[in-house]
Design a protein around this nucleic acid. Structure first.
Lengths: 332, 332
DNA sequence: CCTCTTTCTGAAAGCGATTACAAGGGTTCA
DNA sequence: TGAACCCTTGTAATCGCTTTCAGAAAGAGG
């Protein structure tokens, strides 16, 4: 079932059918109708591979993210997709599940598909792969990783500032023993968050102590990280989590242990995902404007009228502390 | 950057490069090395469009789902993808956000990409579109919608049974005034769930009453549906939700109104998503084996050694009641 | 009725791979 | 030494579409 079959049935050439399909408006309307009828009759669907091969362009954006289960990523994807659709593009998502081999596969898939632009929102990323993307010349937006380059834009979050806000908030409430719950991710932002955490605490001198634990970026992971933390003997009065999803996992573990939040232990999240308002108690967290990130990415990737896809830009986003129910004065 | 460039640099023909890329093992190893080097030097990535055009096959599965934000869908996707990868396929996801136009676009995209198989897990679906898929000859698995056909398989959930279990459970606890929270979805399973709900209640005679409310399939939607329900004057002692996500939204609204769950109001979910264990109180819900659905779909779609993709099969899944904390005796 | 534009349509050359078929170069063996 | 093979590599057709360029059809004007 191809163009030729349609052409034959409509009694025209393949060129004309192609023009009809692409809304090139030079086709006489009677011819167009005939072609449309043939298309419908044959239940014809153009082969998109052939199309983008012949056309050379793809009107498809790629997006690679770590974990669609965490609505932080989903929210970015959602707005990116909406913006892309609005501009006549569609988007291809790939989930790495934080696995480097999936990331590499994903990148190659995207390059192989010759996407018109690529958004990479992952926490694991080695330099070799960044180089590969860079050499592919595909306009790319990295979130939180990667170095700026000719076709590359960067959107970063000022984590340190976020962590400082949350630590200051808690320290002000009298907390001195902190726990940090992160997820596995050898390098990059997570450890940056952890580093920021450790260094910020250091400013308060020896009177404050801390412990850390890591697990997978899931509800279960948050829970089991909390278990490790609490079973370690060190008993924190405040637990700072790398994101809201894991924080909700932590909340559950505390509930099971009959530890009250925030009376016995304070808990904080990061991202300000919807769930953080729906859990009980509602999470104190840091707001990251995911819709802004998504639409920014779309803007950078899709050539707006006239100008081609924006070369490189760098944007840094400042997290905002949102205080809710999960933090309170340290127990005396 | 194409095969020819690589071929030239390696001093061989495009055929040989292609053979190297496809692991056809007739290539002499010294030649292979030369080619590999050229590939690396040039940062060459094969054009997948050209490849699948020439090859005729695609080793890509498509999946269309309503709402990736609801982890019910995500969980199915996750296992489908894992199984597909295992078999050497990758999967393309499309999110319809419950919008018929997105569904239609998605279906056409999948057909246009000539996916090797298609899994459709959505609650909105008109017959015309089903026909379109059917005529495309692409092996397809529908979840909960669609009629069996030559290339079509169906996986269904026995909703009525699920609803009956939950209603019986609640009725046994003394509840007589029920609320039902669903999401918008003109036809299909949702309304089937609602119908099942209404008809099941009818069996108990006039002593039981009910009201329904619908909103979007999100935490917010659950909350605002609960608002409508509670503001309507009818005050249910039990609220049955179409799924866990919305149920968590309902829990929040009840909490805001200082209604205790389950002392004042009982709440149930559907799906037994991870979140249902992590919210407070933990949800009584119906378990749907999403991993089984995902791997079943993969099995049906990917031609296993020898046999081609399974023609048509029909599987019905029985939900299982999981009683947790959110249901209890009706207030007296 | 004929010529000149203006529209519309068709023929054919790619796009970048795969793959059937053919051919070249070594070995082996009589 | 030459025939018969095997192993490797190359040639060229093909996949289904887009697009340029040129030619046919249709109006316009005299």
């Amino acid at each position: 079932m191809n163009l030729e079959a349609v052409a034959k049935r409509a009694g025209v050439s393949t060129a004309t059918v192609s023009r009809v399909l692409n809304n090139v408006d030079v086709v006489k309307s009677v011819t167009r109708d005939r072609v449309m009828k043939a298309i419908a009759d044959l239940n014809y669907h153009p082969n998109l591979h052939a199309r983008s091969l012949a056309g050379g362009k793809s009107r498809t954006l790629g997006m690679i993210l770590s974990n669609m289960e965490n609505s932080f990523f989903f929210d970015i994807y959602r707005t990116l997709e909406a913006e892309a659709n609005f501009r006549g593009y569609d988007v291809l998502v790939i989930n790495t599940h934080y696995r480097p081999e999936h990331l590499a596969r994903g990148v190659r898939l995207m390059i192989g598909r010759r996407v018109a632009g690529l958004a990479v929102v992952v926490s694991e990323m080695d330099d070799e792969l960044i180089g590969e993307i860079e050499r592919s010349r595909i306009p790319t937006v990295f979130y939180d990783v990667g170095t700026p380059g000719p076709h590359i834009s960067n959107i970063r979050v000022h984590y340190r500032s976020g962590i400082e806000q949350v630590v200051n908030h808690l320290h002000g409430l009298g907390h001195r023993r902190f726990g940090f719950v992160g997820h596995h991710s050898a390098l990059g932002p997570t450890s940056e968050r952890e580093r920021a955490f450790v260094e910020t605490l250091a400013q308060y001198g020896p009177s404050v102590g801390y412990a850390t634990a890591a697990d997978e970026d899931r509800l279960d992971g948050g829970r089991s990280a909390a278990q490790k933390l609490l079973d370690s003997g060190f008993s924190p009065t405040a637990i700072i989590c790398v994101n809201d999803l894991m924080a909700v996992g932590v909340l559950r573990e505390l509930r099971e242990r009959k530890l009250r939040v925030p009376e016995d232990v304070s808990v904080t999240g990061f991202d300000n995902v919807k769930l953080s308002e729906y859990c009980s108690p509602q999470l104190t967290t840091l707001h990251i404007p995911r819709d802004r990130i998504g639409s920014l990415a779309a803007e950078l990737l899709v050539p707006t009228e006239g100008k081609s896809a924006l070369a490189h830009a760098e944007v840094t986003i400042e997290p905002e502390l949102v205080v809710r129910e999960s933090t309170g004065p340290a127990p005396s």
